[in-house]
Nucleic acid binder design. Sequence first.
DNA 1: CGGCATCCAGCTAGATACTG
DNA 2: CAGTATCTAGCTGGATGCCG
Lengths: 126, 126
Amino acid sequence: MVTKQFRGSPEDADLRRADSLAREIFSDVANKWAFLIIEALGERTLRFTELRDEIEGVSHKMLTQNLRMLERNGLVERRVHPTVPPRVEYTLTESGQGLRVTVDAMCGWTHRYLSHIEAARRRFDA
Amino acid sequence: MVTKQFRGSPEDADLRRADSLAREIFSDVANKWAFLIIEALGERTLRFTELRDEIEGVSHKMLTQNLRMLERNGLVERRVHPTVPPRVEYTLTESGQGLRVTVDAMCGWTHRYLSHIEAARRRFDA
DNA sequence: CGGCATCCAGCTAGATACTG
DNA sequence: CAGTATCTAGCTGGATGCCG
C-alpha cells in the first residue's frame, strides 16, 4: 500500500511486516457496520441500545461483534457501570476520532456524487 | 448519516430517500477489495492482470466482481481494445479519484496508528 | 440491559473448466 | 487475456433463548 516504493530495498522485511499488519487492520475496519458505528458515535457517548436504535438494520449480534472488534483495536472505549440493570457506554478514542474524520470524508463524498452515481447506474443497467 | 439534524422536518421524505441510497452506495463501496482496487489503480491505468498481480490475494472472481461493481457506480472506467489477445484497461474516473483521496487518508491513518493499535490488541487479548 | 451460545438458512468466494 | 458459468465448502449473520 504505502510502501510500494521500497520494494527490494534492505528495509523490506520490516516494512512488509508493518504493511501486512496495516492491511489486516484495514480489512478489519473497512466494513460497513464498523463505519456506521463510527459515524453514529461521532463525538458522543452512547449506550448499547442507543447505538442499536441509531443504526438502522443492525442486529444485536453484529453490533456486539463489531464493537468488540473496534474495542480490541483501540478505536472504541467501553465503560461498564456495575448497576442493575447494567449500563454500558461506548465512546470513540483519540484514534477512533482520527478514523472518523476519514469516514466523514467518505460520507461527504457519497452525498457529493449521489446523482452522478445514480446516473452511472442507470447507464450501466441499460 | 448526514441528515440526522432534519428528522421530523417537512423535507424528511426526500432526504430519507437520498439517505437510503447514500447508505446503499456506502455499503457497496465500504468493502476491502473495492478499497484495495482503488488504492492499486491510483492515477494509473492498469490491465486486468496487472491489477490482479498488484493486489495480493485477490481471486480472479473477486476482482471481476468488484470491478463490475465499481464500473456500475461510475468510479472506474473500463476500456476494451478489440485486439487478439484482448486488452482491457481500467482507470479511476473523476468520482473514483474523489473517493481515492479518502481511501488514501484511511491508509495514512492506518500507518499513523499502527503501533497504537498493536498495543491495544495486546492489551485486549490479555 | 447487555452479552453470550447455539442453530441453521443463505450467501460468499475459491477452484475449475470452458469460451471468444 | 479477460470473462463467464458451475459446483461446493465454509463462513456469515439473523433468530432465539438463557444468564448475570
